[in-house]
Design a protein around this nucleic acid. Structure first.
Length: 237
DNA sequence: TGATGTGATTGTTGAAACCG
DNA sequence: CGGTTTCAACAATCACATCA
């Protein structure tokens, strides 16, 4: 816990705080729960917590330098989901077996492929491509936060800057959630082995940041006059 | 008719930025 | 680093109107 507070409360030599999901509370004031699925069975149970939610944060981790041929678990090591009060970490790389049925929880698959569940994140199309290529699944209902960011930042003043150009998650968190997002070496660590505390916190932060970011961006969009239309889904049909 | 120009659409290629 | 996406620049293509 000391280690956690250290990484999340201040950068070396300063008192500045970092953005964290632990700064938030659920609808009844409770802390955000983080569920870590290490087996297919547990992950399937965790995925069921997210059934029926209309909008989820979505993110993925994979092994840095993973090449096309380094295998499914190296290319899709961890999948994360977030709703208001829960974060789910699905560690596919730890699930026993190598076939898609062995490592992909059916409910998670259903959620990802459902058009009725919006999934929000940054660089979400690249995640889509990875899931399609390495697991043969067809996600839909994907919302790219960079599009929404560009829309609320520029549609009033510089419409020509409303593009699909990528804006990093860290920059968006800084702009809309006030605090910097911790950037360390965790990001490029080995996501194939059982996660340490730092990795759990990082993975949870990333996906929850996307969820919170969406709501801030969306309320900014709705406050505009005139209200610009929502961007298209990222997967384009 | 046949040749030529215009405008819109489609395709390719490379740089820059993002992801892990 | 390897893999992806996006945009701009440029080329190629096509429909079709115009002109000698």
């Amino acid at each position: 816990a000391d280690e956690l507070m250290k990484t999340m409360s201040a950068s070396p030599g300063s008192t500045a705080a970092y953005w964290s999901h632990e700064l938030y509370r659920g609808p009844r004031g409770e802390k955000i729960s983080v569920y870590y699925g290490r087996s297919l069975k547990t992950s399937e149970n965790v995925a069921q917590f997210f059934l029926g939610k209309p909008l989820l944060g979505f993110d993925m981790e994979w092994r840095p330098n993973a090449t096309k041929s380094s295998g499914t678990k190296a290319n899709v090591s961890l999948i994360q989901l977030a709703c208001e009060d829960r974060i789910g970490l699905f560690h596919l790389a730890l699930h026993r077996g190598d076939s898609v049925e062995d490592i992909m929880p059916p409910t998670l698959r259903k959620i990802l492929e459902s058009q009725d569940v919006a999934k929000v994140g940054v660089a979400i199309l690249a995640d889509y491509t990875r899931l399609q290529k390495h697991l043969g699944i067809q996600p839909s209902g994907l919302i790219e936060l960079s599009h929404l960011h560009n829309l609320v930042m520029y549609s009033g003043s510089r419409p020509e800057m409303v593009t699909r150009k990528m804006v990093s998650l860290a920059n968006q968190v800084q702009s809309h959630l006030q605090l910097p997002l911790y950037k360390g070496t965790v990001r490029t660590s080995d996501w194939g082995k059982e996660l340490n505390h730092q990795q759990v916190v990082y993975a949870a932060n990333d996906v929850y940041a996307g969820f919170r970011l969406y709501h801030v961006l969306e309320s900014k969009r709705l406050a505009m006059n005139p209200v610009p239309p929502q961007p298209d889904f990222a997967e384009r049909g």
